[in-house]
């Protein structure tokens, strides 16, 4: 669907995107993650033709191209910086934004009403946007990005401003859109949601790739995929944990519960003795690392590599 090849974008003194390459397959949810200032928004804006790369190439499927550039009617975009015409009725705003993407007014109106009904806003379709709460404005904005049934949509922070129930609802909608054949580029900070819906993930920092692939593949690449949750009764000798070969890191959840990360190339047997020497174990189980932990660990690894 899209290939981003060796792309660089420099602002006066900052290299926002630095020789970044990745590709997005048709019909997948591709998550672009990174800390603030990592280069996500610049990458997204280049994909959306808002700004041009200094070097490199962004190539869409030939079916998406009209003339010399991508057919903008086949793209959808939910920018991180939200905004709608505040003094215009909701339905008019949606029909206008769909018209800009080449959709007929009658068709757009029908589709918009259907989506508004799904989001519980049908009764308010003639209200001005300014009359809606922030959360409901977010819903209208989300609808505007996918109303015209684009082939490829970029959703930048689609969950922000929503309560947990609506976050779940939005993530269900995103999955449904993917199942209907839409390709989705997702950028979000809600790791537990991204973890559940993304097919593939790209972590970037300072405009460069840190790690990419499926969640499972990333787990393998970052923290060996193994985490052990240990419960102790009484004091824990954390110096013993430091000295035990095979333990790459640990975190105290509370006084009794600790998360222990297994170093790359080590197996559980090799650290059991060290864990037992650190305190009186009452419970021990293995667990999978979360995306949040991968995210944090990747940046630590990235920073360490940079320092080296």
């Amino acid at each position: 669907m899209l290939s981003f090849f060796n792309v660089t974008k420099q602002y006066s003194k900052v290299t926002a995107v630095d020789r970044l390459s990745f590709s997005i397959q048709k019909g997948e949810i591709f998550a672009l993650l990174g800390p603030n200032g990592a280069g996500k928004t610049t990458s997204v804006r280049m994909i959306m033709q808002i700004i041009e790369p200094d070097s490199g190439e962004i190539r869409f499927d030939t079916a998406m191209v009209a003339g010399k550039s991508v057919d903008r009617r086949r793209l959808g975009y939910l920018p991180e910086e939200r905004g709608l015409y505040q003094e215009t009725p909701i339905i008019k705003t949606l029909v206008y934004l769909a018209a800009l993407r080449g959709k007929d007014a009658v068709w757009s109106r029908k589709q918009a009403i259907s989506w508004l009904e799904r989001f519980g806003l049908k009764e308010r379709m003639n209200d001005k946007v300014s009359a809606l709460s922030k959360g409901n404005q977010q819903k209208v904005q989300f609808i505007s990005s996918i109303l015209h049934e684009p082939d490829f949509v970029v959703l930048d922070e689609p969950f922000s401003g929503f309560d947990p129930i609506n976050q779940e609802f939005i993530s269900d909608c995103i999955r449904e859109l993917r199942d209907s054949g839409m390709t989705i580029l997702l950028s979000a900070h809600q790791m537990q949601l991204v973890e559940r819906i993304a097919d593939r993930i790209l972590l970037i920092n300072d405009g460069r790739e840190l790690v990419s692939g499926t969640l499972e593949a990333i787990r393998q690449k970052t923290i060996s995929g193994q985490k052990i949750v240990v419960k102790y009764n009484g004091d824990v000798n954390h110096e013993q944990l430091d000295e035990t070969p095979g333990i790459s890191g640990y975190k105290m959840i509370d006084e009794a519960e600790w998360e222990i990360y297994l170093g790359e190339g080590f197996v559980l047997n090799g650290i059991l003795n060290g864990l037992a020497l650190a305190g009186k174990i009452t419970d021990l189980k293995t667990a999978e690392t979360t995306l949040h932990e991968i995210f944090i660990q990747s940046f630590k690894n990235g920073r360490n590599n940079n320092e080296k």
Binding site: M48, Q49, I50, R72, L75, L78, G83
Partner: peptide
């Protein structure tokens, strides 16, 4: 439009 942050969405469409 600039202050209401509408610009980015429209400029991506046309």
């Amino acid at each position: 439009e600039k202050q209401q942050r509408i610009t980015e969405q429209v400029i991506s469409a046309i």
